[in-house]
Design a protein around this nucleic acid. Structure first.
Lengths: 181, 181
DNA sequence: GTCTATACGAAGATAGAC
DNA sequence: GTCTATCTTCGTATAGAC
């Protein structure tokens, strides 16, 4: 074996607990000490495995980010109208499923420039917006961005709303915004 | 004179500098020490005039919040369709004008429950959403909330966009979302 | 009443012993 | 690889000078 299992085991345990805490209390309200206590190690150990708190956030977001990236890559192979229809339902579904983590994403956006882990996410976001617009018209692309902001905002909003209800709302909103008769 | 000018002068100076710093660097990234240094006083002085950092935020947001509250109160007197049309243009205009402060609002939302200064803002937001929907249908009210989230998200987004461009985008989006032919 | 000096606990982060 | 100890800075609280 090339990699030592011990390193990976600790890393994964930190990630598991961090995700739980971020989902429960939010990113800002969760301290490195909270994570360390939940794992049963010291703050310094957490910072040995991850290069700062934003790096923990990046690692927690990574699985969801990969699903979005894969979805966008698939959609890019389809004709524009089909790609748009596919993303309206499937990207919405992913956003709702991982909505507990959107608070982490939001708190981390301001520091994205400095974090190399996030550079890929920006490009995926750009591609997603263009495919969601279904055209290269700048006005429609801007509306697609507006639609995404609305979706992410609703997912993070403190209003109690069932997953299915939220999905239906977002799909209706995106169709009205982006599918012009 | 009932009020001493000195107190008011210091208070206003703190507010002025805090607003500048919040707009430049964001709420979280601005410390009480930053504000005190900019004003030329000590941290303790800032906390003598304002009961904690969130209270500074509340005071900074207050003028904008009052304009929104007044606008909503005016719109509430109009027939539904006129109120909706009025809010689409005028609320958008206010959001764009004060977009530098929306980051403050965003960072403060999670603690709104505990801050009495903000309780009025929640009610105004509810009334705004209902009037923007133009109807009492829960589905349309939810879409109005989605429209507001989209607007606020776009205003806070790091994308460079001129004020007029942003206004046009939001007005177009709101009309597509809320005015059903 | 107005403000400064000082101190406290918790945060993120680093250095070095083991 | 993990720890303890330590650093800086944050928001906050209080005592007391003027």
């Amino acid at each position: 074996m090339a990699t030592t299992p011990l390193r990976e085991r600790t890393r994964q345990e930190i990630l598991r607990r961090a995700m739980e805490l971020f989902t429960e209390k939010g990113y800002t309200a969760t301290s490195l000490q909270d994570i360390a206590t939940a794992v049963g190690c010291s703050k310094a150990t957490v910072l040995y495995h991850f290069n700062g708190k934003p790096a923990v956030a990046a690692a927690v977001l990574e699985p969801a980010a990969k699903l979005v990236a894969d979805l966008v890559a698939e959609a890019a192979q389809l004709p524009p109208a089909e790609a748009q229809a596919r993303l309206i339902t499937d990207f919405t579904e992913l956003a709702v499923r991982f909505r507990g983590l959107l608070d982490v994403l939001n708190d981390v956006v301001p520091t994205m420039d400095q974090l190399p882990e996030f550079h890929g996410m920006v490009e995926v976001g750009t591609a997603l917006t263009r495919l969601l617009a279904g055209t290269d018209d700048p006005g429609e692309i801007a509306l697609a961005g507006y639609a995404i902001q609305g979706l992410l905002g609703e997912c993070r909003a403190p209003v109690q709303r069932a997953d299915e209800e939220l999905r239906d709302l977002a799909v209706t909103a995106m169709r009205r915004l982006l599918i012009t008769p």
